[in-house]
Each structure stands twice: as C-alpha cells, then as structure tokens.
C-alpha cells in the first residue's frame, strides 16, 4: 500500500532530479497510477523512486505511465459535429487557421481534426501544432499508426462525424476510409496517410513548466481531458496560458466534462466544452 507521504517523496525526488514536476497533479488518480506502476514493474515505491531518478529512459517510461494516454479517433462525436457545423465554417474565410493540440497523447485527435479539415476544404490553410509531455507519445503520434482491433469501434465515430449529417438524416456523404488511412487486418494496424502524417509540427512540451513555445497565437486550442489530472491551482495557470495564446474570438476546446473555475473563466464565453475568448 502506498501512502500519501510516499507519493509526496516520489514527487519531490523527481522534481529535484529532472524537469518534471507533478506537485500540482490531482491526488487520487495520481496515487492510483503510481500503485499500478508498482504492480506492473514488481517494485516498491523506494525502488521506483530511485530508478526514476537515476535512469533517464526509465523516467520517460514512468512519465508515460503516470500520465494518462487514452484517446480515440473522433472521441465524443457531438463535439466534432459542433466543430464541423458551428465553429469551422466561421473560420473558413481566414487565410490561415492556427491550431494547437496541447497534450496530444498518441495523436488520434490530431488526425481526426485533419480529416475533418480536409473534408471541409480547409486543409491547406490550417497550420497545425501538437505537443505532449512524453517523447514516446509524440513518436507514436508522429507515426500515426494504431492497433486496428483496438480502434475498430471508433470507425463508428468516423461515420457519425464525417459521413452523416445530423441536420439532414437523408443525406449521407460517401467517404472511403482509404482516403485517410490504410487498414491492415493481418498486421492489425490502422495507418494514417502520409499527407496527414506530414502536416502537424510536433514538439515536446510540459504544461506545468513551459509557456507558448510555438511563437504563434491560435484560432483553436484543443486540450481535452488533460487538465482533469491537475489540481485547481495548476488548472488556472494552464487556462491562463491558453487564454494568452488565443486570438480574440479563438476557441479553447476542453473535454465534455471539464470546466474552467475561478476568475480566468471571465475571459471566455462558454457553450458546452467550447470556450470562446472574449474581446476586451
């Protein structure tokens, strides 16, 4: 059994020996993931702490495992449908559209967005940036290759967002999956097409520590189901960064059950998970 003090000692040791700082991560789920990591590695907390401070590669693996990396193609179709019909049409006239996927994990959200942009004829004007705290996750995202069986269910999401029109049930748009990705059932892979894989700029970035590293402002920032792992204080700091990194009328898109608390909420107009930056 891991105590809260054990977790604190682990966090302090990592903070002293690396650039990672988990001080303001949310308590319960963080502790649970530490416990799981100990079971998976057959270690006790002292061994985990020691090895994470001495061995850089092991630390990266540890960070990968204690940050949450579950994501899926077109996760939460309602959000994508709102984006498709309410948000993106307003941006279509812009010469460039700047988009940041903050905490992109294994990258399914990036490819979902690229596919949607392509369908709307907005692919060329999009400038797409993606970041994650973990270098392994960034590699996975760049490679754009996923387990077919694991992602099979999410093809339904693709159909809902890309092929169907919720405002006109009689209309279905015929789009073959092969337009955007190759499915190899024998190798059990879904591989994104090269033109999608080449589009985004990937950078390692830690929301705890780093500011806006892309020297650009954004029309849309995605940060879905990332700040749920942070405490209030860190959440506010990160939202402040996003607020400063958005153009006026730009959109911050959070997860369906995330919200902005505190005074920084006043910077935005909210509709569901979409936060539109106010004009001042």
């Amino acid at each position: 059994m891991v105590t809260d003090e054990d977790v604190q000692r682990f966090i302090t040791a990592i903070k002293m020996s690396s650039t990672y700082d988990f001080t303001d991560y949310s308590d319960r789920s963080f502790k649970r993931r530490i416990e799981k990591l100990l079971v998976d590695n057959h270690m006790d907390i002292n061994q985990l702490t020691l090895k994470s401070t001495k061995d850089k590669d092991f630390l990266e693996k540890t960070v990968r495992d204690i940050t949450v990396n579950t994501t899926e193609l077109f996760r939460d179709p309602e959000m994508w449908i709102t984006l498709k019909y309410q948000i993106l049409p307003k941006l279509k006239k812009n010469k460039s559209i700047f988009i940041w996927h903050a905490g992109c994990s294994s990258g399914q959200e990036i490819y979902s967005m690229l596919i949607l942009l392509h369908e709307l004829g907005m692919f060329e004007q999009a400038k797409v940036f993606a970041s994650d705290i973990n270098s392994e996750m960034l590699e996975t995202a760049k490679n754009g290759q996923y387990k077919y069986r694991f992602n099979l269910g999410y093809l339904d999401n693709f159909d809902k967002v890309i092929k169907e029109n919720p405002y006109n049930y009689e209309q279905t748009i015929q789009v073959d999956y092969e337009k955007y990705f190759d499915i190899d059932k024998v190798k059990d892979t879904i591989t994104m097409k090269q033109f999608l894989r080449e589009k985004a700029v990937f950078r390692k970035h830690d929301l705890v520590r780093d500011g806006n590293i892309f020297y650009s402002k954004f029309d849309i920032i995605f940060c879905r189901n990332v700040i749920i792992y942070f405490n209030n204080k860190l959440q506010n700091k990160v939202i402040e960064l996003f607020s400063n990194s958005l153009y006026r009328d730009g959109y911050l898109i959070l997860g369906a059950h995330e919200s902005i608390l505190g005074t920084v909420a006043n910077n935005f107009d909210r509709t569901k998970g979409f936060y539109k930056k106010k004009q001042f």
Partner: peptide, 21 residues
C-alpha cells in the same frame, strides 16, 4: 458518473474525473 470517465472523490470534497484505462 458521466459515461466514459472514471469518477473520483477528491480530498476537499470535490469530484475528479479521469479517462484512464
């Protein structure tokens, strides 16, 4: 508890959500 999230009770008598496995 919302669909597709884990629901935790955090110290300070608040909820926390998670998309862990």
């Amino acid at each position: 508890a919302p669909a597709n999230y884990h629901l935790y009770v955090e110290l300070g008598n608040r909820f926390a959500l998670s998309t862990e496995d």
